[in-house]
Design a protein around this nucleic acid. Structure first.
Lengths: 161, 161
DNA sequence: TTTAATGCAAAAGATTTGCAACATG
DNA sequence: CATGTTGCAAATCTTTTGCATTAAA
């Protein structure tokens, strides 16, 4: 699924602006890695991005792709799907519910909402396939982590665990 | 965060019923693994379940925990959080949007909804922490996978890749 | 020229698998 | 007793890290 050329240009411009603003070097590989994600609507994983970029830059390495992707995520230039960077978590609550997840520490809690349970999805969604469940994920920073925030240095995209 | 004893009992009963119905043996380890997930609201990952069950059954192995957890998921007795069983995926779409994800193959597409964007979350959510983003994930089976469905055997919880 | 970014190879982390021993129905 | 399940150890897959080399600003 290709994104319109015009939109891709815009995303690239924004990317360059943000990088310059953050004092981040615009390397050939970063440009191509971002372009790859920016020009597709199919939400590739790191390895898929790697395989595609590789066609144009045969020497890129997978770890550069990872580093760049997480950098983009830290800069708010891309969004990750699913509970990024954490092992799969399990929940035995079978009542219709939704989740609050702390992006710093993984703290997770259920919450309930009739309004959300009864929302009507756009028809376009149905055309993608048969719908089985709708689930809302609220991402944020839990109280515990906010409290610690003050004395912590902001993690850079390097060195994050 | 502990779940009420009464609720736990109910979950265990349901678990036993489903297992019997599916011809699945009720082993000591399965019971304890399920109990562990059923009695907590903190959404543990496989290793956390392992560590906790281990206290009661010192010989359980991590792989049994994994096998059981996925079995529970296949039976619909537990729900997984995040993009289960798939590497992290990236998306450069910065407009407010939501996702349709196929549980079989990972096919993913964005969709938009003003209604969803404007929904008001219950106050309880705010008490968990500072909200940064709200994102709806619709899980289902894409058209491609439904089409193939007819001639495929249903994957058991054993042997799934 | 200075400092950050890259590529490589090796490590770490998460999850799965083959198989013989074992327990459940 | 028959078959499904377990534990173990080894394998696999994904992601990260240390470090010397290279390239952007």
């Amino acid at each position: 699924m290709k994104i319109k050329q015009e939109e891709v240009e815009q995303r690239l411009k924004h990317f360059e602006k943000v990088c310059r603003g953050a004092g981040i070097k615009l390397t050939h590989q970063r440009l191509e890695i971002f372009r790859e994600v920016a020009q597709t609507g199919d939400h590739p994983d790191a390895d898929q991005v790697f395989q595609r970029v590789r066609k144009r830059i045969p020497t890129v390495s997978l770890d550069t792709v990872y580093r760049t992707l997480w950098m983009l995520s830290d800069l708010g230039l891309v969004v990750t799907l699913g509970s990024s960077r954490e092992p799969t978590r399990f929940d035995a609550n079978l009542n219709s519910h939704h989740h609050f997840v702390c992006g710093k520490c993984g703290f997770t809690r259920d919450f309930y909402s009739d309004e959300l349970d009864n929302i009507r999805l756009p028809d376009s969604v149905g055309s993608y396939g048969e719908i089985e469940a709708t689930h809302v994920e609220v991402r944020g920073v839990c109280q515990n982590c906010s409290a610690k925030k003050a004395n912590q240095r902001t993690l850079s995209y390097q060195n994050r665990r």
